[in-house]
Design a protein around this nucleic acid. Sequence first.
DNA 1: AGAACACGAC
Length: 617
Amino acid sequence: MCGFSNLVLRKLELKNPKLSLLESCTTLSHLKIIHAHLIRAHTIFDVFAASCLISISIDKNLLDYAAQVFYQIQNPNIFIYNSFIRGFSGSKDPDKSFHFYVQSKRNGLVPDNLTYPFLVKACTQKGSLDMGIQAHGQIIRHGFDNDVYVQNSLVTMYSSLGDIKSASYIFRRISCLDVVSWTSMVAGYIKSGDVTCARKLFDKMPEKNLVTWSVMISGYAKNSFFDKAIELYFLLQSEGVQANETVMVSVIASCAHLGALELGERAHDYILRNKMTVNLILGTALVDMYARCGSIDKAIWVFDQLPGRDALSWTTLIAGFAMHGYAKKALEYFSRMEKAGLTPREITFTAVLSACSHGGLVERGLKLFESMKRDYRIERRLEHYGCMVDLLGRAGRLAEAEKFVNEMPMKPNAPIWGALLGACRIHKNSEIAERAGKTLIELKPEHSGYYVLLSNIYARTNKWENVENIRQMMKERGVVKPPGYTLFEMDGKVHKFTIGDKTHPEIQQIERMWEEILGKIRLAGYTGNNDDALFDIDEEEKESNIHRHSEKLAIAYAIMRTKGHDPIRIVKNMRVCEDCHTATKLISKVYERELIVRDRNRFHHFKGGACSCMDYW
DNA sequence: AGAACACGAC
């Protein structure tokens, strides 16, 4: 502290007006020391110094202190007001930016070109298009609508608030477009969901910087085009540009979603080789990537080296354990998190409760759910109720689960009923399934999965008339099943398989391989279970079609192309079907290979003829 | 004092 104080004095003696040392203040007491010195040196009346002090106080969330400084200034000028507008523009209370703007005008001050980018940013932050339009009106009235900084902020504001037309109108009118203008517009198209349009503009840009690349790569990742994100990252590298941490976050997240362990490891290696800082965000992304790629040990390893751990990084690891069904580990880390002095958040409970559910720890889950409100004072939200329905349902306590849904304090949404319906599938209960399924179809008539699930349950309980009714209903409403696919990564390339895939260049060998596998697992007792195919396939086609499920094709390809004892890792975009699950168990036994399958819900580790999910998923 | 980009769950 003393050293800090001396530093302040020295800087002030040098009469360095930039006051850059304010940046190094980490606590209120640091600021107060500088403040005291400023007053002693009579520089507090220097508007620049006051503005620095105010804006840094605001940045550090020391709002009361900022206000205190503010009231010591007689006749604050627009410079000071701009600091407040800026300070609040990215805060939780962006209304305050407007408040200070209005106050500055009331005091007879004239806004300048630095006022508006932040006022507009406050509107973006607030999420209010009305406010944004008002700000735009002010901009025109004060003649700043030709300032490129202002125009760029307007592009961001309109596109963030859903008015892509106004955004592109403003963009087209910018007379001196710079790289930020282009980048803002690309980001705008991505926010509107039009990634194709964004890419077209991206390709047309006269110059790009790293932010531009980052926007486009993260844009692909955010819209689930993970393979495109990786592809663009490779293009970036081929242009000889060195990626930064921000880009790598999106790349790592894309590998996580693709389950591409090799690619993820390579990217991790690139990060280390180029001496990038593995900050909390990048580190958390890495933990998530390793967990989602089935390499939970490495996830723990990265987690242990994080520069610091916040609630989010703990939660990410806990969610990783949950995905793998390691309920005890999840609970262990949950208590370690608390011992480390971090308060669990809502999302932490979603992870812990889902761990209990996947691990079958019903009583423990129920207790945690109770203590959430009682001990942690965390409001229980829909997702938590969803976890509970899942927990009870998976354990076969279907009546309780249904009662729970009917008695919950808020209106159950589709995922809640979906959890109940899923549980009915596991436990073959068509009675509750019918009620849940009907509600779901009313709630989400466009969602094919619920029709399929209900139909499968009817089929399994031999209610063929109902199966036919559902099929009819889907036809009438034009509901189509989104294609299921399975991913398998080899040598840094991600292979995608779809049902009855004919497009893969090696499809003939793959099919022959599957025939061979089929022969072997039949000898081990596989009979073929067609339940999940009953819905949309005629009796005769059933056998051949179910054997073309993307998961089976992927496994056949993996067995064909890999040797040794490394586990085979594949990723599905849907839940694994009953038949594939049975077949995979037998394959793990017959071929003595470990198979790690990630479906949309959790991991299945197949080994020696058994699955880690204990056949409940 | 300016404008554009990044992590988790469902």
